[in-house]
Design a protein around this nucleic acid. Sequence first.
DNA 1: TAATAATATACGTATATACATATATATGCT
DNA 2: AGCATATATATGTATATACGTATATTATTA
Lengths: 115, 115
Amino acid sequence: MTPEILLKSLSDQTRLRSLMLLIQEGELCVCELTYALDLSQPKISRHLASLRDMQVVVDRRAGQWIYYSINPKLPEWAKELLQATLRGSQKEKQYKADMKKLKSMANRPDNRICV
Amino acid sequence: MTPEILLKSLSDQTRLRSLMLLIQEGELCVCELTYALDLSQPKISRHLASLRDMQVVVDRRAGQWIYYSINPKLPEWAKELLQATLRGSQKEKQYKADMKKLKSMANRPDNRICV
DNA sequence: TAATAATATACGTATATACATATATATGCT
DNA sequence: AGCATATATATGTATATACGTATATTATTA
């Protein structure tokens, strides 16, 4: 992982919003992100795929659902960068709205691994 | 300053390389960055202007030279994000080469404010 | 096995971003 | 004033990136 790759992954708003939720929630499936961010499924899927390709996140399949989470193997500087980003994001309206929407989602798949 | 803006400013390699040198050196003029990064003057100038517009850096004129430095008013999370980026960058070949080139520059303007 | 749900991908298009080159502006010096 | 140096900007072009829509894939359930 290089700063260039990690920063590129954070340079798009959809990926940034997704990652901020992932940091907070541990792991989320595509449908949860689609709902929370109010964006189309292909759009979320495409951005998550690019995050996976860049090894910023990892995925695991659980039945129909594919759960994404921050790659635990990220180097320390990268994790700290993400945490700093989160601290900055938590002041933003958009971030707060996203979290609220996520929490309000009915029928969230609950077979997740708790983190 | 928002994460979106700061991260966008870091998503281009020229801006990233410039910022990494600025963090280390305190302040640098356009000609020093042009030399250290081995890029055209307009390219450096354009990117520094965009960093200034985004308020990531500030500038001051000293005679013919215009010195750029990290905006001291950046919020804490942003400074920490930049430091984390620096820690990641210091492992990279490119970063090391840039620093080496900078140090090797003859006739660096020396009327800088020490930081 | 058919139908449904969740996710992924392909493809054409639109937009943003960076680039090189040329030119303009500002300062210092003689 | 005239010239050199440092920096900035304008312009057209190329490239990267994101987008919407349609379709494919994979797993579950009836």
